[in-house]
Design a protein around this nucleic acid. Sequence first.
DNA 1: TTAACATATGAACAGATGTCAATATGAACA
DNA 2: TGTTCATATTGACATCTGTTCATATGTTAA
Lengths: 121, 121
Amino acid sequence: MTERGNVVDKNEFLAVREDIVQKVLAEQPDDEVLYDLAELFKVFGDSTRIRILYALFEAELCVGDIAQILNLSQSSVSHQLRILKTSKLVKFRREGKIMFYSLDDDHVRTMISMGMEHIEE
Amino acid sequence: MTERGNVVDKNEFLAVREDIVQKVLAEQPDDEVLYDLAELFKVFGDSTRIRILYALFEAELCVGDIAQILNLSQSSVSHQLRILKTSKLVKFRREGKIMFYSLDDDHVRTMISMGMEHIEE
DNA sequence: TTAACATATGAACAGATGTCAATATGAACA
DNA sequence: TGTTCATATTGACATCTGTTCATATGTTAA
């Protein structure tokens, strides 16, 4: 293999159109943005969390309600709710001993509707 | 713990509002649909695939172009393209020895734009 | 303050996922 | 046909992720 300085080009034998590559590279968003975007989609990319979000479409729910609806342990639901909170997809309020969760904004509905449209084709 | 038949209720001590639970359960989509939806989002939930999709915003690209743009092995890019093909997010055509990939439809752009709006808040 | 309740957190484990190296497939052309 | 090139696939490996069990936190009421 050819070397450039100490760097070995793993893809030496590869069809690459350098002009196109440069043009596309110039337009790419920052890696950090793309990473954050992937992280957001990752949150939607688990059926347990999708089911939680769908349940919250209908009503504000407490942890116990959700555990019952999804037939999951309290612990598991709590863990997933933490992820949804961190991503700002759900918000919550306390009423005595009970925590009530609800959707944070309409982006969630829109994103999920978009996904639905795609898989329904 | 109490038992119902042979089923042990792991969540015996849990705040559950049965009426709400029943109402929400009645409105939930089929598990299969929710599973497919999660699978779709999972595809977007990887920064390599997001970067591939973003690159394809700009131009139709061959495997070598993408490998160069993302600084990844040909093998890895090919693997990810297969996943994107299976999810119908990209389409492809052959021209001699070269495979050209492009975005399959505008859902991809819309979904990603939605995600962007959310993280930009 | 103590007991009971609702939820959150930590550690550990199994299963899923992305990457690479090596190899296979398939197309073009001598 | 045989060789070269572009891409696809296979197997192995390390990392990431979701669940459970056990325990901690924080609230209410006696």
